[in-house]
Structure formats: C-alpha cells, structure tokens
C-alpha cells in the first residue's frame, strides 16, 4: 500500500489535532499555530518515519511536545494526588452532559489541570486507546487510567457547578401590580 501523501494526512488529522491543541492552548490562534507547526515538522521530518501506521501517533506526540516545550517552564504542573480516586460508585450525572454545547465542554476541559486535561481530551477525541494515549503522552498506561478517572470526576464537578450557576442567573420576572379596586 502506498504511503499517504501530505494532503491526505492533513485531511485525516488536522481537525482532531486542532481540537487537541485547543484544549491545551485555550486560545484559537495558538491552537492553529500549534497545529500548523506540527504539520510543518511532519513535512520536514516525516520522511524519517519508517512505519506509516504510526503517522497519527507521531503527529499527536509531536503536537504535545511542542506545547510542552513552550509552556512547561511557565506553568509548573501542580503535583496531583493520584491516589485520591473514587472509592465507591460515583454520582450519576450523565444527563448534565446532554444539556451543554461544544464550547461549554471545551471551556470546562480547559479549567482542568493539564495533567488530566491532555489524556482526557485524547480519550474524548476517541482516536486512541488508553495504551496509545500512554504512548503519545509518554506516561504509563496505569497512570492514564488514574488520570482519566480523576479528570472525569473534575469535569463532572465543573459541569454541575456550571449548571447551578446558570440556574442562579435565572431571575423571576416581576409581574406588574394589578389594582384590586380598579380605577377610581
């Protein structure tokens, strides 16, 4: 089978890469820059990759490294308590997600610590298994599971709070007073 050309690779992955970049970088312009930079690196060095089946992993890994290269020093990731996992069946909150839009989902993801945000975004893009996510991020597979568990708990909490905030903003409309005695 012939290796895919540059345009085919761009068409296959640029949208998913952009979404991953957006969750990492917060700002659309920065996400677009990260995505472009990743493909430029592919254009100049991709020929060194022998296994065509690893193109997708190469692109996501490169984008993630590019992001870390420029932001790791500025934002030290706080150490997370990875042992603080859910000890019992978590609260069921599936219906919360039905009432939000894409922008709200990304906004909530962006509030989560990058330690959890990166694996969580890759998980929701559904492009990679947890083992592949581990490879892309350079962490053990068990750590991916821990971070997904913790990250989902944080995401649920944020969305619940978001919904509560939204409901508080609903102010009852004041009805005009009616005079009981009518005009005198």
């Amino acid at each position: 089978m012939a290796a895919p050309d540059f345009e085919q690779i761009v068409d296959a992955y640029y949208a998913a890469l952009y979404r991953f970049a957006l969750s990492l970088a917060h700002v659309e312009a920065a996400a677009a820059d990260l995505t472009q930079q990743t493909f430029y690196l592919w254009a100049s060095r991709g020929h060194q990759l022998r296994d065509a089946s690893k193109v997708k992993s190469w692109l996501f890994t490169t984008l993630y490294r590019e992001f870390l290269n420029f932001h790791r020093r500025e934002t030290r990731f706080p150490q997370a308590d990875l042992d603080a996992e859910t000890a019992e069946l978590p609260e069921q909150t599936g219906s919360i997600a039905d009432s939000i839009d894409g922008a709200t989902a990304v906004a909530a993801l962006q509030q989560i610590d990058p330690v959890y945000r990166a694996p969580l975004t890759l998980f929701y893009l559904e492009e990679f298994s947890y083992r592949e996510i581990a490879s892309v991020l350079g962490i053990p597979a068990g750590t991916v599971m821990s971070r997904l568990s913790r990250g989902k708990s944080l995401l649920r909490k944020l969305l619940v709070e978001e919904r509560m905030d939204a409901s508080r903003k609903i102010v009852p409309m004041r009805l005009p007073r009616t005079s009981e005695g009518g005009a005198s």
Partner: peptide
Amino acid sequence: RGFDSAIAARLQSIPAPAELRSRIL
C-alpha cells in the same frame, strides 16, 4: 457511557478554523 458519549460528541463537533487547512497545505 452516556456522559462520555455526550462530551465526545461535543468535543468532536468543534470546527477547525476555515483557513487552517489551506494554510497547513
């Protein structure tokens, strides 16, 4: 799974900027 499906659908519905593809190419 309901929660995950909903979040995944929202995330995957975000469009990339219109000019991004042509810039990359």
